[in-house]
Amino acid sequence: MDWALANLPRILSLTVDHLLLSLPAVAAAFLLALPLGRVADRLGRLREPLLGSAGLLYAIPSLPLFIVLPILIGTGVRDALNVIVALTLFGLALMVRSAADAFGAVSQDVRLAAVAVGQSRWGAFLTVELPLAGPALLAGLRVVSVSTISLVSVSAVLGVASLGSLFTDGFQRGIVPSIAAGIIMTVLLAVVVDLLLVGLGRLAMPWQRTQARRAGS
C-alpha cells in the first residue's frame, strides 16, 4: 500500500497509457466486426471457413504478433500504433464470430416484416437488425474489452508503456507491490470498463431491462 501511494502519479499515468492503447483497439475491433460479421453471416457455405480463419487469428500468441506485425504495416515494434493494430486483430478474431452469431440470431421473420412495411434494406438494418442483435453484440464486446485490457500489458516487455510496465519494473527490481498494483489496476480497469459498457447498453437498449425483469419474475 505504501509503495502504491508513493508511486500513485506513475500508476495513474500508466493507467492512462493503458487505456489509450486498449480503448482504440476495442472500438476499432467492434466497428470493423459489425460489417464483417453481418457479411460473414450471409455467406452461406463460406460462413464457417471465414469465421474459422478469423478465429485462427486468435491462436497467434500476442508477443510474436507484436514483433511480426511491423513488417506488414511498417511501424516500429515500440509504436503505440503497432500495439493497437495487433490488439484490434485479436479483438476482431473474437468479435467477428460474435457479430455473425448476433446477426444470425435475428429472425428472418422480423427482418422480412421490416422490409414488408416498406423499410429500405439499410433502414431495416439500422432500425431492426442492429437493435435486435444489440444484446448479443454487447456480450461479445464485453469479452473483447476484458481480454484486450488484460492483453495490453504483454507489450511492456518490448518497452511500450502501460500498466504492464509495473510488471517488468517490479520483476527486474524485485518489487512485489509493483506487480501486485499492476494486476489489481488491470483487473479494476477491466471491471470498470465492463460496467460502463453494461451501463451504455442499458441506455441504448432500454427494452432489455423490462425483459430481464420479466424473465426473472
Binding site: 485490457i149 488484460s150 504492464g164 510488471f167 488491470t186 471491471v191
Partner: peptide
C-alpha cells in the same frame, strides 16, 4: 479473463 498473463 481479466488477469494479465505477464503480471501473473
Amino acid at each position: 479473463r481479466a488477469l494479465p498473463t505477464l503480471g501473473i
